[in-house]
Design a protein around this nucleic acid. Sequence first.
DNA 1: TTAGTATATGAACAGATATTCATATAAGGG
DNA 2: CCCTTATATGAATATCTGTTCATATACTAA
Lengths: 117, 117
Amino acid sequence: MSTQCNCKMISAKEIDEIKQGLPAAATIEDMANFFKVFGDFSRLKLLYYLSKAELCVADLASLAGMQASAVSHQLKTLRLNRIVKYRKEGTVVYYSLDDQHIEGLFELALTHLQENR
Amino acid sequence: MSTQCNCKMISAKEIDEIKQGLPAAATIEDMANFFKVFGDFSRLKLLYYLSKAELCVADLASLAGMQASAVSHQLKTLRLNRIVKYRKEGTVVYYSLDDQHIEGLFELALTHLQENR
DNA sequence: TTAGTATATGAACAGATATTCATATAAGGG
DNA sequence: CCCTTATATGAATATCTGTTCATATACTAA
């Protein structure tokens, strides 16, 4: 065994061990896309409001200080990722959370931020 | 009370109730930035490898199929967000996770993805 | 010192993305 | 019917972001 750096010299066995139990690349990509949804200030704000109450688009826009159009675009993203669900009542569409794990995600993030202050 | 849509007509009291317990805008922004770090395929891949072993830049590049430079750039992002830590040994820099909650984050994401298949 | 290796960094480019604006759809009231 | 309101959608734009390439730094060995 030389004193040389063992970088780029991981054995096939070690590579196998490291890759053992890792999700498939497609799964990791799905996960990245899932986290990406939460990685935006506007969307996260909307989700926080929805964690408190079922709200229509106009109310969300008013609370978040956004245009209804921008809210609608973001809600579409949240819908496509099955993070919110909606209910129509006349011309009004009420949105609410469609995921039980969101509060858990928020808490994990807050814990991380507090520990690193 | 009219039959009119109550959008944009939330009372000050309701607004207060909804905003009650919400983190400050700056905190929500911090959270969004935290999630953003996980919202990228390359970074998530690197974090998965690091969850299995302490690894140097070259090994990470080899495992992830990325250039060392790209890995280094991403590791900087992870360092700045205090998600990984490093240890120097000669010219080699070994990286490892610096957050106990990452596995929890991964599990939450996986759970969400599995429930919506 | 000189050469070689591991990592980091800055600039530049390409691709992604959030917002805005204009417009479309859809439902209700008059 | 027409008019208004609530929401959705498409295109355009400006900003952000990840990678690459070239180069710099830092450490080791000879």
